[in-house]
């Protein structure tokens, strides 16, 4: 899948931060990967291990936050929680859903020294 490109994206963000914040090593990287994002946390962790070699992030611990999927149901006029994209509204069983959260794919925080 495309997780290697995304792991490379993490390294790009870290490089950018290293340039302005002057640090020598990253101890911990905190990510946010929403339940509805198109990314498997296990495979991004695997790819990160490969991508971080020979960078300031080599050996850094990866922490992954998983916000739940949130959608607005047009029929219920309410925000509901769903586990995956094709799931029906848990209230009315319909599919008139608009995803409003849980598709995040972000680097939140770095612990550095």
């Amino acid at each position: 899948m495309h997780e290697l490109s995304l792991a490379q994206g993490i390294i790009d963000v870290i490089r950018e931060q290293a340039a302005t914040q002057s640090f020598a090593r990253v101890r911990r990287v905190r990510l946010q990967i929403g339940a509805l994002s198109h990314v498997e946390p296990e495979s991004i962790a695997f790819c990160f291990d490969a991508a971080c070699r020979d960078t300031v992030a080599e050996g850094a611990r990866l922490e992954i936050e998983r916000p739940p999927g949130q959608a607005y149901c047009l029929a219920c006029a309410a925000t509901v929680t769903i586990a995956a994209r094709p799931d029906p509204c848990p209230r009315c069983g319909g599919h008139q859903l608009m995803v409003v959260g849980g598709d995040e794919l972000r680097v939140l925080e770095l612990e550095v020294d």
Partner: peptide, 28 residues
């Protein structure tokens, strides 16, 4: 570089947290 470190309050050996909040697909 030294003055940049001072400005950022960096202590050698001490870990610090940087709040980043950057989208992974930002480059794309």
């Amino acid at each position: 570089q030294e003055s940049l470190r001072h400005r950022q309050g960096r202590e050698d050996g001490a870990a610090r947290l940087i709040r980043v909040e950057r989208d992974l697909l930002a480059k794309n």
